[in-house]
Each structure stands twice: as C-alpha cells, then as structure tokens.
Amino acid sequence: MTPLQIPVEKWAGKVTEVKLGGNGRKDITIGGENTLPFLHFEGTFPHQPALAIEIQDMEPDWPADLLLSWGDAVKDPGQWARKAAEYGADIVALRLRSAHPEVENSGAEKAKRTVASVLEAVDLPLIVLGPEVAEKDNEVLLAVSEIGRGQRLALGNCTDKNYRAIAASCLANEHVAIAKAPTDVNLSKQLNMLLHEAGLPMSSVLTDPTTGALGYGLEYTYSVVERLRLSCLSGDEMTSTPIICTVGEESWKQKESRSSQDIPESWGAQERRAIIWESITSAILATAGADIVVLRHPRSVELIKEMNGKWLSMT
C-alpha cells in the first residue's frame, strides 16, 4: 500500500488583515488566515479570533440574568466598557440604540458624547453600531466618525443603500466600515464591490453577514460564512474581508435565552441554557469562519476564550 497522502488544499487567497484601534489606542489586527478555521495542517492563523463585548448607550431591555451579570455598569457606557475590558473583551462594541427613531431618536450630539466617553474610559478598539435604520445610521455614524479620527473605529452598519456616505467618512477619518447584507453570500460580496468602487480598500471593511441564532436561522448564517470564506480562499478579494457576527444580540432575543418560567422541563436550567445558546452560536460561526464575535454574557466570553486558547495552542 502506498503511504497515505494527507490532502492539503493550495488556497490562492487569504483573509485581508484589518486593523482596529491604533493612534494612541490599543490596536488589534483581525484576519490574515490562509486556510479554513482550525485547519492547523494546512495554513496559518496570524491573529486569533477576536471577542467583542456589546454595550449600549442606554439601559438595555435585556433579560434579568444577563443584566445581573453586569450590575449597575449598564447605567453608564463608560463604566460598562471598563467592566467589559475587565471581563476580557478584545474590542468594545457600542450599540447606539437610543438613536432609533422609535426609541429616543437621539441624534449626532448624544452619539458623539457617548462615544467620547467610551473612548475615554477604555483604550480598547471600538466598534460603533447605529440603530440599523439607514438614515439614522448615517446621521450618528458620520458624527462619530469625526471624533475618533485615526483610531480606526469600526462603524456599522452600511448597506447597499447608504454605503457611500459611510465609506467616504471612513476613508476621510481612517475608520473601518462594517458592511451588512441580509444572509446571502452574493449580497455580501456585492456590498464589498460597491465599497471597493467607492474607493474604500478591503483592509478597511468588515463583513456582517447577518446572524441567525441557534435554532433561529443559524444554519443559513453558517453556510453564508462558510461560502464567503471558501470564496475568499479561492482567491476572491471581494469576499476576503474578516467576518463579524453579532451573536449575543441574536441569541439573547430568543425565548430559549429569555424564558425562565412556564418552560418545559426538557429545556433544562435557564442560565446554563442561555449561556450555552450564545456560546454554541458563537463557536459554530467561528468554525465556519467568523473572525469577530460580539457577545453579551461574561461567561460566554470566558468559554469562547478558553476554546480559542485551546485550538490555537493545539491542546
């Protein structure tokens, strides 16, 4: 019998490296891998997958268990960010929820103030997410873009309808755009192509493929992420941007994470279930190719950190 050859793919592409932070702020580089996740025998992973912890610019409407884990910190974005750093966040992800027209409809001024206070509170790289209403996103993100100039904040989201203004301000103020398209490999790629045409280099783009939580469309996201990564590795620069998944937000929306009463016994203990729900969503998307996961519960952060440590050290 001839000795068995381990099949090693010769990939033509690799994930574009994107730097967040810098200019006096701690920085982190994401991407750079030249094979599928976890395949030690085939390629290299110059940067480990990053963990972002989500904070909000107002008290969140989260389930009690989750709120409990943060205590009073949720009342103040700066304090919350500091606590996130203590819990081991690589990146702080600030959601400007109050800017939503049907929440507080707060505007550019509040956004700037909040971002300034978070930048002041921690020296971690920062992701700033708008309320996901295109016009409002434009309003608050363009304002934010001016204050963190040069610190490579990741600004999200831009979509195929509002990408031009955000792309221009990322270019002018040295930030990174988060390109979000609805769970489709083609739509994500198209958005990258539009950003590219608008002059933004791929090294200033993160792709948010739209996350579905475990049991709520996770399989779609899983396959979109996997297809994006395969396409990138086959040499397509327009799908080579690192992938960010807003796992915590999606996972904690579901009744499996929220309900503690009137639930079947077979669901098991509430807190363990909620944390595992978030962690499995996260682990599985990392297995597909996610480079940044945004989490909510400190225990999930701990679990994913342990997992990352293990696979990177091959233990």
Binding site: D184, Q190, M193
Partner: peptide, 12 residues
Amino acid sequence: SEFTAASFLPHT
C-alpha cells in the same frame, strides 16, 4: 442564488 448573483452589474 444564481438570481441574486446576477442581480448586479454585470454580475457578482
């Protein structure tokens, strides 16, 4: 999927 890929100029 092919349709979405083709819904771009000229193509995704």
